[in-house]
């Protein structure tokens, strides 16, 4: 397994508060990884840095076989490199149909002119149908995304991420606000997705993490506290201290 993303020695501070402190992190191709940690541990900021939303004060973020630095790219360029991100709050385009949402996400030339001249082909529509089926939304294709339930929006967003065909998926609390059945479906989707690409899931819910059955990284005060299987890290005394307080 080759390393897909390597974050090393990254620090960032807001008004003197160190959100990320000398963080190092690696993930390989086709790996599923859960990131847990208490509030303010720097989970979201970590994602912000990888996706280009926040510029770190120091450190390196290296991507792919050609080892390009992501720090010199903007969000859109990073996304085109193959990093997809799902936000904590489901963000789909509510004034557009599910189909339009999918079509927008399909991996195609993102240039202004080619988007202007783009008209979906039969193959494109078939791909959309396949994706919709995968996330269980085939029946909803021509509804407005705003009319969907919370869980459906989450799936739509995951579906859109898959449509982007990214090599790395960053998923922020996908199970928040879901019913137990929906959670199960979501975890299956993620496990499935991780077979062909790297997936990083940030989650609070231990049960959900356990269901993913993958390597876990614990963040605390902007740095990695522990790494390993869920059972391994939950038996780590530092982790117990952080979670339960001293």
């Amino acid at each position: 397994m080759s390393t897909l993303l390597e974050v090393s020695g990254v620090s960032v501070s807001f008004d003197g508060f160190k959100a990320i402190n000398n963080l190092s992190f690696q993930i390989a191709d086709a790996e599923l990884r859960a990131v847990i940690g208490p509030n303010g541990a720097g989970k979201t900021t970590f994602m912000d840095i990888v996706t280009g939303k926040t510029r770190p004060d120091e450190g390196r973020v290296i991507w792919g076989e050609r080892s390009v630095s992501l720090l010199r790219m903007n969000e859109a360029q990073i996304a085109r490199e193959g990093i997809g991100r799902k936000f904590q709050k489901p963000t789909v385009f509510e004034n557009q149909t599910v189909r339009e949402n999918f079509l927008m996400a399909l991996k195609k030339d993102r240039g202004v002119l080619s988007v202007l001249l783009f008209r979906p082909s039969k193959a494109d529509h078939e791909q959309v149908d396949a994706l919709a089926e995968q996330v269980g939304m085939l029946a909803e294709l021509d509804r407005l995304a705003g009319e969907l339930s919370h869980g459906q929006k989450q799936w739509l967003e995951i579906g859109m991420l898959l449509a982007q065909e990214p090599r790395l998926l960053l998923v922020d609390e996908p199970a928040a606000g879901m019913t137990p059945e929906e959670r199960e479906h979501t975890s299956e989707l993620l496990v499935q997705a991780a077979k062909t690409r790297a997936v990083v899931v940030v989650e609070h819910d231990m049960e959900f993490v356990r269901r993913l059955g993958c390597k876990v990284t614990v963040l605390h005060e902007g740095a990695v506290l522990a790494e390993g299987s869920l059972d391994h890290v939950t038996s780590n005394s530092d982790v117990i201290d952080v979670y339960l307080g001293r």
Partner: peptide, 26 residues
């Protein structure tokens, strides 16, 4: 067309469009 989708997307949620890989500024 898709261009319309993208610009309406920019109107409703600029950041999301950016993370889809579209150059919002362009």
């Amino acid at each position: 067309g898709k261009f319309g989708s993208v610009i309406r997307g920019i109107r409703d949620n600029e950041t999301r469009v950016r993370f889809l890989g579209y150059s919002v500024e362009g």
